[in-house]
């Protein structure tokens, strides 16, 4: 089997260590992390600032190399992949939602959403058609020709979610997706992620320190000082926007 071909497995980490710098200036961000993330679940990575959440999610997404330890994502050992192969893995299998949205300001909403498909080799016309379809699904079908700067924060994050999912990735990683929006919008975004990301063979990992959205997680993994402090099942208390008017 091709080593870059994902299986129905989720994410497994064993004694994952990540150091930044070297010598006396070395900083150990992850100190032996053991994590199991099953497909079909929405996993929240929580913890205080500097605990290693972003480092862990970067390694899982294949954008950062671990210093030591074993881990596999969707059954693929990313450590063994070359740089281009890792880029291809990300392009095919990973959807990203960033804290600051990271939409490309020079592209329209539809063009932004089309980018992952273009990276995967789709023609511009095909990519734009598919992007328009998913934008209708996130209720932005009337804003396809708008530029990101013309949208509210919540709308921009919805565009980012559409972009993360347009190419049907097996792994969705979201970094603080609700930190730049208000509480109501944050809940709507988490609901959208839950609706769109959770499939039986899909892994969704959301980094957050926003306690208001903890209720959306199937599993909550708490990191402290580079280690897993706890891993427990979430209560899934929010199935709808609790702040919405009755």
């Amino acid at each position: 089997m091709n080593p870059t071909t994902p299986t129905r497995k989720g994410v497994t980490c064993r004694n994952l260590v990540k150091d930044y710098g070297s010598g006396e200036s070395r900083v150990r961000a992850l100190r032996g992390v053991d994590v199991e993330i099953a497909p079909g679940e929405l996993t929240l990575l929580v913890g205080p600032s500097g605990c290693g959440k972003t480092t862990l999610i970067s390694i899982l997404a294949g954008t950062l190399d671990a210093t030591s330890g074993d881990f596999s994502v969707l059954g693929v050992n990313l450590q063994r992949l070359s740089k281009p192969a890792k880029a291809d893995f990300r392009a095919r299998n990973v959807g990203f939602v960033f804290q600051q949205f990271n939409l490309l300001p020079f592209l329209t909403v539809a063009e932004n959403v089309a980018v992952p498909l273009i990276i995967n080799g789709s023609s511009r016309a095909t990519a734009t058609t598919l992007a328009t379809e998913i934008l209708h699904a996130v209720e932005l079908g009337d804003r396809t020709q708008s530029f990101p700067s013309q949208l509210s924060g919540g709308q921009q994050q919805r565009v980012a979610i559409a972009r993360a999912l347009v190419h049907q990735p097996r792994l969705l990683v979201a970094d603080e997706p609700t930190s730049a929006v208000d509480a109501r919008t944050g809940h709507a975004i988490m609901e959208l992620i839950r609706q769109m990301a959770l499939q039986p063979d899909r892994v969704a990992v959301v980094v957050t320190h926003d306690a208001r959205v903890f209720g959306f997680g199937d599993r909550i993994i708490t990191l402290e000082d580079g280690r897993v402090a706890s891993s427990k099942r979430g209560e899934r208390s929010f199935t709808h926007d609790p702040l919405a008017p009755a």
């Binding site: 281009p84 880029a87 291809d88 990300r90 995967n120």
Partner: peptide, 16 residues
Amino acid sequence: LKHFGTLKAMGMRDRR
């Protein structure tokens, strides 16, 4: 750079 980084994270290869 932010945009190049975004494209890179999303899987665009260096040669692209």
